[in-house]
Structure formats: structure tokens, C-alpha cells
Amino acid sequence: MTNPTPTAQLSAAGVSIWLDDLSRERLSSGSLQKLIDEKNVVGVTTNPSIFQAAITSSNDYKAKIAELAAQGAGLEDTITELTTTDVADACDLFAQIAAATNGVDGRVSIEVDPRLAWDTDGTIAEAKNLYKKVDKDNVLIKIPATLEGLKAITAVLGEGISVNVTLIFSLERYRAVINAFQTGLELAKDNGHDLSKIHSVASFFVSRVDTEIDKRLDAIGTPAAKALKGKAGLANARLAFQAYEKLFSTERWVVLAEAGARPQRPLWASTGVKDPAYPDTLYVTELAANGIVNTMPEKTLDATFDHGVVTGDTLTGTYTKANTVLTALENLGVSYNNVVALLESEGLDKFVASWNELLADVEGALAAARRAA
């Protein structure tokens, strides 16, 4: 009998491996199915940047855009049709996994228009529209964890819709996300929904924390500063897992769990290593524990499959050391609150910029199709 691959070992340790990418080519070529079969992928996440790259860098969408142009479709409706079709088809691909795991895995995420990140009512309406448009039980609607997004998360969950909360950087915001989730389940219960059918993940971003903090440590330049490089992202995520353990063991949660609720799983996002000096599997093997999700770009997935060293649970019991790292950073003048606020702002700006590029490119494609008709 052959030895299990590192991704199989990771899966056996209770980590759900999701791919952070989706395109029409992945679906039509069978490459996504191959990752399911060979590298233990059990879900997919998308974001505005992923769709912008997929739609504008290939000819796979040209015929559909021409068809929509002939039908007189507008720009926004065209983009919705292209993205939700890919997500619905991916949901079908993962349907067996979703059924086998009672909906825990086999999930495909689609994000609301990022320009709505500061608009609670707009986000709620868009989330409902996407959920209805995809029309698959195993879809997750992604909502950014802005202050305005928190209320939307509660409202959408209250409608019985499963949610992926995204762009979480700070521990304080993560605790607020968990509160929004539990409030949403309480609302869903009052509304008569089956709590066992409502699923959620909280996407906590990792590598971007190191990128920003390492830049500040390099500017300080002391040996003490350089010794802390590459440690903040892991420390932050480990303390998030501590918060998860605490807030899903309260009396409030016990009441919900007894009513059939499932916990909102932590999901590690932004797990591709940005600094080549660090191991390329750093944010995978060092953040493993039963019951978490790690969504990986294909490069990170391939690295993990090829040479990841899986040693089991690398989260539980790491909290004292993680606190020490964040305290040392503050003592050096690196403001945690400043960093996480900046990263949220930059993350949203990036998604809005990608969405605007997508709008412009699809608008051009629609115009070209109409001229050619």
C-alpha cells in the first residue's frame, strides 16, 4: 500500500482543502475534477479578482457574451450570468461531496459586488439575488466583514442562506463576525429555518499580515525586529483559532447546537506565501487542526501535495507563544490595529478595482459583439 500524499494526510487531520480559484476552463477541461480526485480538494472559493482574471484572460466566455449581447443583456446582468453559471456548474461538480458530508464540504463561494461592502441593505439584496440565481444548496454567499457587512451577515443567515464571511484581518473583528453569525442563527431559528442546513465559514486572511508587518520590521531594521519577520501571520491566525474555541463553547452556542446548528468554521485565506524566503507551505502545515478550512491557490496546493510535511494539529496550545509575538511587535512600535485596518481597506480597494476592470472589459466585449452581429 502506498504512503498517503501530504494533502491526504492533511485531510485525514480534519483540514478541508478548498481551491481558491475557478474558471470556465477549469470546469470544461476536467482540471478541477482532477484536483478533487488526486489532491483532496473538497470545495472552491472565488472573489472579484479571480473572476476578473478568468473572464478577461481567455476566450471561454466569448460565445456566451455574444449570445447575451444578442439578447440585449445589460452589463451588470451579463457579469451576473457569467459568474453565477460557473459557480452553479461547480456546485454540481461538488454535489456528491456536499451530500456525503451533509453540506459541510462540497461548497462553492461567490462574493457580492465589492462596491456594496459599505452598504448593508445593498449587500442583503445582492446576497439574496445571488443565492436565487445560483440556485444550488451547496453555494456560499461571500460577504466582506466590514462594520456594515456584519448586519448583512446576520440578516442573510436569518433568511436561511449559508454565508462565507470574507476579508477578516483582526481578532476584534473576528469575534464580531462570530457574534453576527450566532445572532443570525438565532434569527433563523425564530424564522422557522432548519439550523442544520445553514453553513458558514469565516475567512481569516494570513499572508497579507506578514507582508505588511515584515515591511515595517525591515524599516526598523534592528536584530529584534528582523527576528520577528514571518511570525505575525501565524500568530494572528492561531489567536483567531483560540477565539473560535472559546466562543463556540459558550452557553449561547450550546443552545444553538442543541437546536441543530453547526459551528462557523475558521477558513484560512491568503495562504500563498509572498516572501520566497519562507517555506511555500508555511500557512498550510503550520495552521492545521481538525475542523478548519484552508483555501489555497493552485501553486500552494501543488507545493503542499508535493512536499508538505503534515504533523497533525499545529494550532492547539500555541496561544501563549502567539500572544508573545504580537506583544513584541507592539513594543517595537508596530501597531496591530493600524495594520489590520490598512489591510481591510487595501483588500476592499483591490476587489473594487478588479470589479471595475471586469466591468470595463465585459462592456467592451458586449459592444464588440453587437458591432459584429
Rank of each mutant, 00 (worst) to 15 (best):
P6K: 14
A8E: 12
A8G: 06
Q9M: 08
L10Q: 04
L10I: 05
A12L: 15
A13I: 02
W18H: 12
S23R: 10
S23I: 10
E25F: 04
E25W: 11
L27W: 01
L32G: 03
L35Y: 12
L35H: 11
K39S: 15
K39T: 09
T45E: 07
Q52E: 03
Q52G: 07
Q52H: 12
A53M: 10
A53K: 04
T56V: 06
S57P: 11
K64S: 06
A69F: 11
L75E: 02
D77S: 13
I79G: 10
T85E: 10
D89V: 13
A90W: 11
C91K: 13
C91N: 12
D92G: 15
A99V: 06
T101H: 08
D105H: 09
V108C: 07
I110Q: 02
I110S: 01
R115A: 01
R115V: 04
L116K: 04
T123Y: 00
A127F: 04
L130M: 10
Y131W: 07
K133T: 11
D137T: 15
N138I: 03
P144W: 01
A145K: 02
A145N: 07
E148G: 01
G149V: 01
L150H: 13
I153P: 01
V156R: 07
G160W: 07
L167M: 05
L167Q: 11
I168K: 05
F169T: 03
S170M: 15
S170G: 12
V177M: 03
F181R: 12
F181Q: 00
Q182N: 05
A188Q: 04
A188Y: 03
G192L: 05
D194A: 12
K197W: 09
S200W: 01
S200T: 01
V201E: 00
V201P: 05
A202C: 14
S203V: 02
F204I: 09
S207N: 05
E212V: 01
L217Q: 08
A219E: 13
G221T: 11
T222N: 00
K226M: 14
K226G: 13
K231N: 14
K231V: 05
A232F: 11
L234N: 02
A235I: 04
L247G: 00
R252H: 09
L256W: 00
G260P: 13
A261L: 09
R262F: 06
R262S: 09
P263W: 07
P263R: 02
Q264I: 09
S270L: 13
P276G: 15
Y278M: 15
T281S: 07
Y283K: 04
L287V: 08
A289F: 08
N294W: 04
M296L: 15
P297V: 15
P297M: 14
E298C: 05
E298W: 13
T300D: 12
T300P: 03
A303P: 02
H307K: 07
V310L: 04
T314C: 10
T316G: 09
G317N: 14
T318V: 04
T320P: 10
L326T: 13
L326E: 07
T327D: 15
E330H: 06
N331V: 11
G333S: 08
N338S: 06
V339M: 06
E346C: 03
E346K: 10
L348V: 03
D349E: 15
F351I: 08
A353G: 05
A353Y: 01
W355R: 00
L359I: 10
D361G: 05
E363D: 14
E363Y: 14
A365Y: 10
L366V: 06
A368R: 00
R370L: 07
